[in-house]
Simulated assay, not measured.
Amino acid sequence: MKPTYLTEKSIAEFISRALAEDIGDGDHSSLASIPADAQNQARLLVKGEGILAGVELATYIFRTVDPDLQVEVLLQDGASVAFGDIALTVKGRAQSILTAERLVLNCMQRMSGIATYTHYLSRLIEGTNATLLDTRKTTPNFRMMEKWAVVIGGGRNHRFGLYDMVMLKDNHVDYAGGIKEAIEATRRYLKDKGKELQIEVETRTLEEVREAIETGGIQRVLLDNMSPDMMREAVRMVGGRYETEASGGITEETIAEVARTGVDYISVGALTHSTKSMDLSLKAYK
């Protein structure tokens, strides 16, 4: 099931903005060199290994550019792929295929890279109770697709933006005057505004964990840049009263040990901010 932020409207608006950025007043290379009535076909070729993502989005893009383009999907989102695989074929007006080509590839390459790395890290924490989360460390105007790729790769989305969950990070806590002050001010704000949002508070020390527990009125305690031993003690202190999340400097070398501390969630910004794209290409064939 697709995440709730993926609606027909949201996808259509993204594609419209992206095509406007790329096409401007016309794809003059294709308009100039290819006859308007020329028909052709192309294959989307995989030139790497990993988890494929963005196939469904690609079909939206092709059909937005030209509703008459015929897309045959051969490999679905989430499929394990290897060099030489064919993800899909597209047939129709040659000009339309070429106009859609770069946006399709840009999206699918980036999304497949994210899905691949998400799948890899998820495998490293199998057998534990920890769930892998993404963050807001995303590319402006491409967050929706990057978070979609995380889901395709087997991870889960953290909050989508600043509006759908309260996350009191270190700067909020410091500016507010402390853990207790930040939580209590937030609870008053939410009550005054009539909003029902979950509250997560970031902690940097076991004393801050203790203060968050004693203050209460939250849903999750974030354990930031703590050693595994500190995390383990923090989880023991929380004792299941609130969810726990580990974050900060977590790598593929350390994530399994972090998961074994008993945390409920592990958030990794590198899923979306430092992932290598998968090599894909769209090639004409007869």
Rank of each mutant, 00 (worst) to 15 (best):
N171Y: 12
Y189Q: 11
P140S: 03
K193Q: 14
V150D: 00
K191A: 15
I152C: 07
D174L: 13
D164Q: 08
A149L: 02
I199Y: 03
K193N: 14
M167G: 06
M145N: 07
P140R: 04
R188C: 07
T138Y: 00
R159L: 08
M165E: 15
I179C: 06
L197S: 09
L168F: 12
G154Q: 02
A182E: 08
V151N: 03
V151A: 02
M144D: 12
K193A: 15
N141V: 14
Y175P: 03
R156A: 03
T139W: 12
N157W: 07
H158N: 14
W148P: 04
I152R: 01
N157R: 06
K180E: 14
R159Y: 10
R188P: 05
A182N: 08
E184Q: 15
G177W: 04
R187W: 07
A176M: 01
E200Q: 10
T205D: 02
E208L: 00
K147C: 09
A176Y: 01
L190Q: 11
E146Y: 00
N171W: 05
T138E: 03
H172W: 09
E207H: 13
A149Y: 10
D170P: 01
G153C: 02
G153R: 03
A176C: 07
F142T: 06
I152M: 01
D174T: 12
A149M: 02
G161L: 10
T138H: 07
M144E: 07
R159V: 03
E181S: 13
R143Q: 11
M165C: 14
I152H: 06
L168N: 13
E200M: 04
L197K: 05
E196P: 05
I183V: 11
F142V: 03
G154L: 01
N141T: 15
T205S: 12
D192K: 09
M145A: 10
E202T: 12
V150A: 02
V209P: 05
F160N: 05
T138L: 03
K147Y: 13
T138V: 10
L168G: 11
H172G: 01
L206G: 11
D170L: 07
A182V: 14
R159E: 07
G155V: 00
V201L: 07
N141F: 14
L162H: 06
W148V: 04
G194E: 01
R159H: 11
H172Y: 08
K193D: 13
L190T: 08
D170Y: 04
E202K: 10
Y175K: 13
E208Y: 02
A149K: 04
H158M: 11
W148Q: 14
I199G: 04
E181K: 15
G161E: 10
T203E: 01
V209F: 10
V166K: 02
Q198A: 14
K191Q: 15
